[in-house]
Structure formats: C-alpha cells, structure tokens
C-alpha cells in the first residue's frame, strides 16, 4: 500500500513544482526583469520602473495565469471524458470537443456577425464568444454520447471523434469562404489565439468560467467513481445516470469550451495528463485523481509555455506544437500497452 508519508511527499513536491514553474513563467521572457522586482510587483502592485510593472501585470501574469487555468481545465475535462466514455484515449481534443467549440465561435463570428446582428466588438463580446464555444462543445459531446451508446468499440468512437473534428473544420472552412474580409480577419486572429493572447479583460471571463467548471467537477467526484464500473453497476448502486451525465457534461463543456474560446485548440493535455496522474498516484479514485490531474496539468502547461518562449527571442513557438510533442509519446505508450492487454485476453 502507498504509505501516507509517500502521499504527503508527492503532493508537497507537486505543489512546490507548480509554484516554482508559475514564478519561472512570470520571470522568464525577452525582457530581463530581476526576480526581486517581479515579487515586489506581484505583491505590492507597483515598481520603480513603470515599464516593468506593465510587462509583468499586463502580459506575463495574465499569460501565466492562463497557462495555469488551461492546464487545470483541459486535464480535468480529459479525466471526466475518459471515465464517462470508459475510454483511456478520450480527451477534449481527440473527441472533437475543441473543434466543436471552434465551430461555435466560427458560426458566431463569421455567420451571425456577418449578418450584422451584433456590432463589432461590444463589451459583452467575450461572454458571447465563450457562450458560443460552450454550445459548440456541448453539442459535439452529446453527439459522441449518442454514438457511444450504440458503438462500444473504443477505437471506433475515437475515429468518429476525429471525423467529427474534421467535419467541423470543413464547415469552418466553408464559412470562411463566404464571409467578408473584416469578419474573416477577426476570426483568423481568434484562431491564432494562444496563452499569451489572453488579455486581462478576457481573463475576467475565463477565470470564473473555469472555476465554475472545476467546482462542478469536484462535486461530481462520487459520480465519476461510481461510473468506473460502468453504467449498470452505477445504476444498481443508486446513481442517477442522467443527472450525473448532465453535471459532468456541463463541467466539461465549460472547461474545454472556455479554454478553446480564448486560447484556441490546445491538444493532448486532456488525454495525457490523467494518465500521468494515474502513474504518480497509482489509484483510480477520482477524489485523488481529479486534484492530481489539475496540478500536473498546470505543471505541464506552464512548462510547455516556458519551453515555447525560447529564451532570448522576441517571438514564441505555438503552444499547440509543444503540447503535442509532450502528449503524443504518452498517447503512443497507452496505445501500445492497450494492444498488449488485448492480446492477452
């Protein structure tokens, strides 16, 4: 049995690592700012050098916060999907949930806005965009659920997820073709969204949305545990299947939809991080796996962000490429291990 001492040690180590990476992410950048100044800016809000506090408060802090929240959100939504679909390879990106969010935003920006219903960029536009992303991801989630009640094979569902993703991309392409230049430009800028592209005002929308999603995820821990054994067992133990699906889907749509709406699609965190958490904590219990995935997700995304900004360079690499390079080896490892299991049985 894993001793309590070991558990405590693991948790402290992970939390310490998370804090250090967060500070490192704020500290590192093209402009060299002494760590003393950064700490002073964070805790007192001002500095002797005006440009330093602008850089830290307007750019680095929002970016690090976004990386942290995106890591939390994507990992938790991946964990939820892996349990509810009983599929180790499920995640918001592979199942097309992120594409669903993109489609929602595309229809809003290119379709509805082009028709002139909304003004250019109103004060509520952030909320409207995020709402469109939630609806888009929620709809794809329902579609996958409908299919998964008929098709039980894991790989088939995965391929269907990829098909849904491609289909939404195709629809987005068609929408782009028919939209006018200004809208197209607005949409292209949105698709290039990155962790660094999230402004302070967007963070006011992103933070409460993600926190709400995480709170719902935390209160659905018992439901997720019951679903581990499959729906029949869950039902026989008194779980309200519909209610728990509703909770988990709302949470997943909030988490994956919000992050996709503001940062664009970030792949493979959702699949890979829950497996890392299982590896570290050696449990299937969601009351440990869920906070564990959150923290590891934060660590992985902060680390990816630090890698992406190439010290000394002005520009940074696309975050999606880094997370793919981190996540894909883990996914391959799962597939190969799965293959070995199915050969035995």
């Amino acid at each position: 049995m894993v001793s309590n001492k070991y558990k405590l040690f693991t948790w402290s180590l992970l939390i310490l690592l998370l804090i250090m990476l967060f500070l490192a992410d704020v500290f590192l950048g093209s402009v060299n700012i002494p760590i003393k100044e950064i700490l002073r800016i964070i805790f007192s809000g001002n500095s002797e050098y005006k440009e330093f506090s602008t850089i830290v408060l307007q750019f680095r802090l929002p970016k690090a916060l976004t990386a942290l929240l995106a890591g939390f959100a994507l990992s938790v939504s991946g964990l939820q999907m892996q349990t509810i679909f009983k599929n180790p390879l499920a995640g918001p990106y592979v199942l097309g949930i992120s594409s669903g969010a993109s489609l929602g935003v595309a229809i809003l920006v290119l379709g509805v806005s082009s028709a002139g219903i909304f003004g250019q960029i109103g004060p509520f536009s952030n909320w409207i965009i995020v709402l469109a992303a939630w609806i888009g991801s929620g709809l794809i989630l329902l579609l996958i659920l409908a299919v998964s009640t008929r098709v039980k094979d894991i790989m088939t569902i995965l391929i269907l997820g990829i098909m849904f993703g491609s289909a939404t991309t195709a629809v987005v392409g068609i929408l782009q073709y028919f939209s006018n230049e200004t809208m197209l430009k607005a949409f292209i800028i949105w698709t290039m969204g990155s962790l660094g592209g999230v402004s302070m005002s967007q963070l006011y929308v992103l933070t409460p949305s993600v926190l709400l999603g995480l709170v719902i995820a935390l209160i659905s821990v018992k439901m997720l545990n019951a679903l581990l054994l499959g729906e029949n067992y869950a039902k026989s133990m008194g779980l309200n299947i519909r209610l728990s699906r509703f909770f988990i889907f709302i949470s997943t749509s909030l988490l994956a939809g919000t992050i996709t709406a503001f940062c664009g699609p970030i792949g493979f965190i959702g699949i890979a991080v829950p497996h890392l958490a299982r590896l570290v904590f050696k449990t299937a219990n969601h009351s440990i796996l869920l906070p564990g995935s959150m923290i590891i997700g934060g660590i992985v995304l902060l680390l990816s962000d630090i890698i992406s900004q190439l010290p000394g360079k002005e520009s940074s690499l696309p975050i999606n490429s880094i997370t793919a390079l981190v996540g894909i080896p883990i996914v391959i490892w799962i597939i190969i291990r799965k293959q070995r299991f199915s050969n035995i049985s």
Binding site: N225, L228, G238, L239, T283
Partner: peptide, 25 residues
Amino acid sequence: IVHVNNLRVFDLVALGRFPHTNWFG
C-alpha cells in the same frame, strides 16, 4: 468483467458504500 487500471480491491468494495455515503462519497 470489470477491468479498471489502478483500482484497488478495497476501493472497488468501498464503491458498494455509494448509497450510504455523503455527496462527496
């Protein structure tokens, strides 16, 4: 047949307590 990775025997049996535990299990 239940195949869940990393699920301990104790935790599986404890799932039976589902109707008897609070909201957080």
